[in-house]
């Protein structure tokens, strides 16, 4: 333990407003603390550059999964364990369940939160690809009011976001898929559990009249931020399913290799990430074609 406990202050507001007031009064001075599964690791290693923490864990306003006929809205403090066991999410947004399932292991899943995973800004986080594939939106709230931001615009650079120092993430909203759709999620991690992604890929597609009417591809660990592979998406979107043959897929794989900007680090190499992303895209497209042809 190299963190400095004595120099730390933790404040525990009892209401969301109370929390927002503190963030507003001393902008940038307080670090939101949710489940602590990111912050505590850095703290213990003695590398966390903050010492004042705003403890959100008790704020019930930030909990709960709410569903309407169109959308599912998850409170900022929703844990992986809650996502993992939610029947509606399992049925309609399976990528989210899979993201939760492959995150850490049980003890992490009981503590880690969805908003924390997003706000932490790690390019290797595992819910972002699914959230990108589902076109999620993030609600940011401050004393001044609240705003919904499309999640794809949330990250602006490595560990940088559009969130203002006085804002909190309060909810994450995902639209319920309609029609004939296909979901794909694959994490290629360093091991089967307790693993950091080397490549993570999530996709959502909807077919209409023999064509791919909608296609979103979210990726992790292949760029400074979680990203959508836009060129690849454009290539696939609108295509007749019949035409998604081997040759097309080979082209899509090449496009994806251009879309992403992976790096070498202690966990993997850029060339591995590039090639495996492409290969998993191949798997995804094959499975998608099979799935839509079956319908």
């Amino acid at each position: 333990m190299r963190g400095q406990v004595p120099g730390c202050t933790v404040h525990t507001p009892t209401t969301l407003i109370g929390a927002l007031e503190i963030l507003f009064a001393e902008k940038g001075a307080w670090r939101p603390l949710a489940g602590g599964t990111d912050l505590m690791v850095l703290f213990a290693a003695g590398v966390l550059p903050f010492s004042r923490f705003l403890n959100l864990w008790g704020l019930d306003e930030l909990r709960g999964i709410e569903t309407t006929s169109d959308s599912v809205s998850l409170g900022a403090l929703t844990t992986y364990a809650e996502i993992r066991t939610h029947p509606l999410i399992a049925a309609e947004l399976p990528n989210l369940v899979q993201s939760a399932w492959v995150t850490g292991a049980m003890a992490i899943q009981n503590r880690g939160t969805l908003a924390g995973n997003i706000a932490n800004g790690s390019p290797a986080a595992d819910t972002p690809p699914s959230l990108l594939a589902y076109g999620a939106e993030v609600q940011l709230q401050s004393l001044a009011g609240s705003r919904w931001v499309p999640y794809e615009n949330f990250h602006t650079g490595y560990k940088q976001t559009v969130m203002l120092p006085e804002e909190l993430i309060t909810r994450i909203r995902v639209w319920r898929p309609k029609g004939d759709n296909f979901h794909f999620f694959r994490k290629v991690g360093t091991r089967k559990a307790q693993a950091i992604s080397k490549v993570c890929l999530a996709a959502y597609a909807r077919a209409e009249e023999g064509r791919v009417a909608e296609f979103r591809l979210g990726m992790g660990s292949v760029a400074p931020v979680p990203m959508r592979a836009l060129t690849t998406e454009m290539l696939v979107q609108g295509q007749a399913i019949e035409e998604l043959d081997g040759q097309f897929i080979a082209g899509a794989k090449l496009a994806l290799m251009e879309d992403i900007r992976p790096i070498d680090d202690i966990r993997s190499t850029a060339s591995y990430r590039r090639k495996v992303s492409a290969n998993v895209l191949g798997q995804l497209l094959e499975e998608m074609v099979e799935r839509f042809k079956r319908a």
Binding site: T190, R191, K192, A193, Q194, I196, I266
Partner: peptide, 16 residues
């Protein structure tokens, strides 16, 4: 050793 953390040095879990 550059990966001196259990998260970066990859020993098997019960799933592996």
């Amino acid at each position: 050793m550059a990966n001196g953390q259990m998260t970066n040095y990859i020993m098997a879990t019960s799933m592996d």
